[in-house]
Amino acid sequence: MTTSLQLPSLVAGRDLADEYADQLGDVAEETVTVDARSLTSGTSSFAAQLVRRILLEGHAHRLVVVGAPARFVHHLREASAADQVSAGLETVDTMQLADAS
């Protein structure tokens, strides 16, 4: 099963990441797709908490982040490595989406 989340243009802080994770509910064994195409800036703390809540604590099968800015992708990758859940993180840039169509 797939659960989706759409991010606004700006995201910051662990509390906001917690709010989004709470909205998703139980994601155990699911693929969570995050649409980040509108995102222009996201903090490392938001990225770290999102990864932690979805992959580490939420036990999601996969976290797929689509269209995030390079800096935010970097934050996500650092967080997933720190939490040892890198295998569960997939990032897809908008160029990959265009090539697939």
Rank of each mutant, 00 (worst) to 15 (best):
V51D: 15
F72D: 03
T91A: 10
D93K: 02
T43V: 01
Q6F: 09
T33H: 13
G58K: 06
V51Y: 15
S9E: 15
I54C: 02
Q6P: 03
E19C: 00
Q23K: 15
G58W: 08
Q49C: 15
R37F: 14
S4F: 12
Q6E: 13
R71L: 13
A98F: 04
T40D: 08
S45C: 00
L39G: 03
T31C: 00
R77Q: 11
E29A: 06
T40V: 08
T40I: 03
S101T: 12
S41Q: 06
L5V: 04
Q49R: 15
L55Y: 07
R52D: 15
F72I: 02
A79K: 10
T3Q: 10
H61Q: 12
M1V: 00
A21Y: 07
S45H: 02
T43W: 01
V92N: 10
D83V: 07
Y20R: 07
Q49A: 14
L56D: 09
R62K: 04
L16C: 06
I54H: 00
Y20T: 04
M1T: 00
L56V: 07
H61D: 12
A12V: 08
A100Q: 07
V64P: 07
V34L: 04
S45M: 05
F72M: 05
V34W: 02
Q96R: 14
V11I: 10
L55W: 13
A21T: 13
R77P: 01
S9K: 15
S45A: 10
S44I: 07
V32E: 09
L56S: 12
T33E: 13
R37I: 11
D83K: 05
L10R: 05
M95R: 09
L10V: 04
L24G: 03
G58P: 09
L76R: 12
H59Q: 11
T3C: 08
T94V: 14
G67F: 02
L76G: 12
G42N: 01
T91M: 09
V64S: 14
G25A: 12
D35V: 02
V92Q: 15
G88L: 07
S4G: 06
S44Y: 03
A48W: 08
E90H: 02
R52P: 12
L16T: 14
R53S: 15
V85D: 09
R14V: 03
E19G: 01
R14N: 00
T43H: 02
R52T: 15
L63V: 06
H61M: 10
V32H: 04
I54D: 03
A47H: 13
L10T: 02
V73A: 09
V73E: 11
D99Y: 04
T43Y: 00
D93M: 05
S86M: 01
H75V: 11
S80G: 05
A70V: 10
S45F: 07
E90A: 06
A36Y: 00
E78M: 12
S101D: 14
E19T: 12
T91R: 02
E90R: 05
E29D: 11
L7E: 15
L39A: 02
R14S: 14
G88P: 01
